[in-house]
Simulated scan of single mutants.
Amino acid sequence: MNEIDVLQEVFGPDEVPSAAAHDRARAALLHRINDPGPARRRPRWAIRITAMVATAAAAAVGIVALENIGAVDERGTSRPVVAALPFAKPAKAAELLENAAWAAARKPWAMPRDDQFMYVETISTLNRRKILEAAPNGPLVPGKTETVRQETWMRVDGDVMASRERGGRLEVTRRTATMSWGTIPYADLAGLTTPEKFQGWLDAPKTFGADPDALLMQQVLPPDVEAAIYRWLARQPGVQVDLHSVNLDGRPAIALTWTEEGYLKKDLLFDPRTYALIGDRLVAVDDHVRESLDGTTRIKAGDVFRLVVRSRAGIVDRPGDTV
């Protein structure tokens, strides 16, 4: 296949490059800048590349098939497509996150109404109930844990939430004058479509906020917002990648890891085939003494605080509905 064929495949009949082509060009350019290879290094001033040439370079980067990302036709019907990931074998955190961003941005999506619900199902390893109630923020106790399936529904306007644990009864709670909780306005989240906008939101004073990993695991975000958070994470110092990890349920995973508070290692786990977010965990990597209102806690390296699989998520019409 020559360069003209490559360009025709990428662009199709349109004269203007597609958003997908632009993303792949950006990813390829980042790859060339960060890892030019052993042959010869171009001087920085020489890296001036047009969108068309960059796109051809992106097509030449290792390509894999990604079949389970849906597309929506003119009738609104979802259908699977085969698409080319920016990096066939991501070896760096920035490459993993570019794949995750690229895949997230191609999910079928319609902006939810205020009266619809964000549905998230997780499978967690938790301490048994008595231990959990006595020390809700303590590490998991080996041999005294259980696996718990949890479902949550949060209305988009934040005024109704519901939950179900272990397949039991659905509990619905409505915001009242005497019952309330902190929420992030969904319109605020929907506007965070670039890493810069996300950083601005993090820096701005607000009544209620959340860490990036909590937003990704607990909210159902618009695809371009999810992609923006991944690209924001790629810019953070100390973020690393572990290509040979496993999820709580035994599935192979790629782990994005970083250290918090000097003694905790946080992992976000991605499916190595689809680059979808499938779980997270929090593990102590050093001994630490933690003082809190609950008293003094002595933490040992290797203590596990969180093991969660995110199994399903989506927008639904009412509590009890699933995807």
Rank of each mutant, 00 (worst) to 15 (best):
Pro139Met: 07
Thr145His: 04
Arg128Tyr: 02
Leu97Glu: 05
Ala84Arg: 14
Thr145Ser: 02
Val81Gln: 15
Ala59Arg: 11
Met118Cys: 12
Ala56Tyr: 05
Gly70Leu: 08
Phe87Tyr: 14
Ser163Val: 07
Arg128Asn: 12
Trp153Thr: 04
Ala104Gln: 05
Ile131Ala: 13
Ile123Met: 08
Gly167Arg: 13
Arg155Leu: 06
Trp109Ala: 02
Asp159Pro: 00
Gln116Cys: 04
Ala60Gln: 13
Phe87Gln: 03
Trp102Lys: 04
Val141Gln: 03
Ala71Phe: 05
Met161Tyr: 09
Ala190Phe: 13
Ser180Tyr: 10
Lys107Leu: 07
Trp109Phe: 11
Val160Thr: 07
Asn127Asp: 12
Pro139Ala: 06
Ala190Val: 14
Trp109Tyr: 12
Pro185Cys: 03
Arg164Ala: 11
Met118Phe: 07
Asp188Pro: 14
Arg155His: 02
Pro139Glu: 10
Glu121Leu: 09
Arg175Lys: 12
Thr77Ser: 08
Ala103Ser: 06
Ala94Glu: 06
Ala56Val: 01
Leu189Glu: 13
Arg175Tyr: 05
Thr77Gln: 14
Ser180Phe: 10
Val141Thr: 08
Glu151Gly: 04
Arg175Thr: 00
Met118Asn: 10
Lys107His: 07
Ala57Ser: 11
Thr147Met: 12
Arg113Glu: 14
Met179Asn: 08
Leu85Pro: 03
Gly182Met: 08
Ser163Asn: 11
Asp157Asn: 15
Val72Leu: 05
Trp109His: 04
Ile184Arg: 06
Met154Phe: 12
Pro142Met: 08
Lys144Asp: 09
Gln150Gly: 15
Glu151Ile: 04
Lys130Thr: 15
Glu146Asn: 12
Lys92Phe: 03
Arg155Tyr: 03
Leu85Tyr: 04
Ala162Tyr: 10
Thr122Trp: 02
Ile63Ala: 09
Ala103Phe: 00
